[in-house]
């Protein structure tokens, strides 16, 4: 179900889980477009040479995934803030799931707060944060 107005939202509602495309090709495309095409984002071997476990998904790309998940759930919403804490690297070519859940609703300002979590296959949190999203009632 997609969300069109604030009254559609319930406290504790879970957004559909989002599986991001963290393939090297996709990350390369993003990094190049964003001007972040350094080898740590585009080349596993070069990243390992820097002491990293593999090529990294850029933080701004992870934030983009979070925004994409929110807009799939509430296409007409406006994301006012995505506030992330990066606890561990998100590695290219590894599977992740992104989940979101509504943890606050303010009907007066027509905003909701969403907890966001990026987990790896072992269920470990790599990135967490919150988003403030405005879901205006259609005129």
């Amino acid at each position: 179900m997609t969300i069109n107005q604030i009254s559609d939202v319930e406290f504790g509602e879970e957004l559909p889980v989002f599986t991001p495309d963290t393939s090297l090709d996709n990350v390369r495309r993003f990094a190049t477009a964003a001007g972040w095409a350094g080898p740590r984002f585009t080349d596993h071997e070069a990243a390992r040479a820097e002491g990293l476990p593999g090529a990294l998904v850029p933080g701004i790309m992870s934030q983009g995934f979070l925004a994409a998940m929110i807009h799939r759930w509430a296409p007409e919403s406006r994301i006012e803030k995505v506030d992330t804490v990066f606890r561990a690297p998100v590695i290219v070519d590894q599977p992740y799931t992104i989940s979101g859940v509504v943890t606050d609703i303010d009907e007066e300002t027509e905003t909701v707060e969403i907890d966001l979590t990026v987990n790896n296959e072992a269920g470990e949190t790599r990135v967490f944060g919150t988003a403030t999203v405005r879901i205006a009632t259609p005129a």
């Binding site: 406290f11 504790g12 804490v85 943890t103 606050d104 707060e113 907890d115």
Partner: peptide, 17 residues
């Protein structure tokens, strides 16, 4: 500084879930 949770929402969450 890295906390994002409001205490009332913790309480609401514990009871709702």
């Amino acid at each position: 500084d890295d906390g994002r949770a409001k205490v009332p929402n913790y309480c609401q969450w514990i009871r709702a879930r």
